[in-house]
Design a protein around this nucleic acid. Sequence first.
DNA 1: CAATTGGTTATCATTTATGATAGCGATGTT
DNA 2: AACATCGCTATCATAAATGATAACCAATTG
Lengths: 72, 72
Amino acid sequence: MEKNEVLVKIGIKIRDLREAKNLSLQDLSDKCDFEKPNLIRIEKGRTNLTIGTLLKIAHVLNVRLAELVDVE
Amino acid sequence: MEKNEVLVKIGIKIRDLREAKNLSLQDLSDKCDFEKPNLIRIEKGRTNLTIGTLLKIAHVLNVRLAELVDVE
DNA sequence: CAATTGGTTATCATTTATGATAGCGATGTT
DNA sequence: AACATCGCTATCATAAATGATAACCAATTG
């Protein structure tokens, strides 16, 4: 699977986990300490995420890093 | 676990997988299409890796992305 | 109607990951 | 002795991730 496909799927997984916890984009981005538009960028798969950013999100969503990237 | 610790552990995992396949830094970096010093930086956990870079390495090492980051 | 909330896009400045080069010490080989 | 290979460091330019702001639409609420 190629990069952009993986990034889009990771984004979808993040959105699904966020919605399962009934968090708005504002809620989650607040807890991650960055702005809402940046989270949208991530959920849409438009950025080549770093481990650091993924970790922030994993912590807030209370899932393991490996789970966030398990999309193949 | 905090970011730097995770990055160091991912680096160790990559090194272990590389050595298990009897690949030199030169071998693996060649197959990943980047230079040896850049791979060393990664194995030492000195860079906040992107998914794109991790994917290149995962492909060459023939492991899943999730396995590379499963260090927690 | 006005104000708020949720999702979205575009854009900008700053930081930093990436990709590459040169060089070093140690070990092994011819 | 000269040469190659391996692991490693420091450093540089460039591309791109990050962090932030302004603005939009739709739906809801006072």
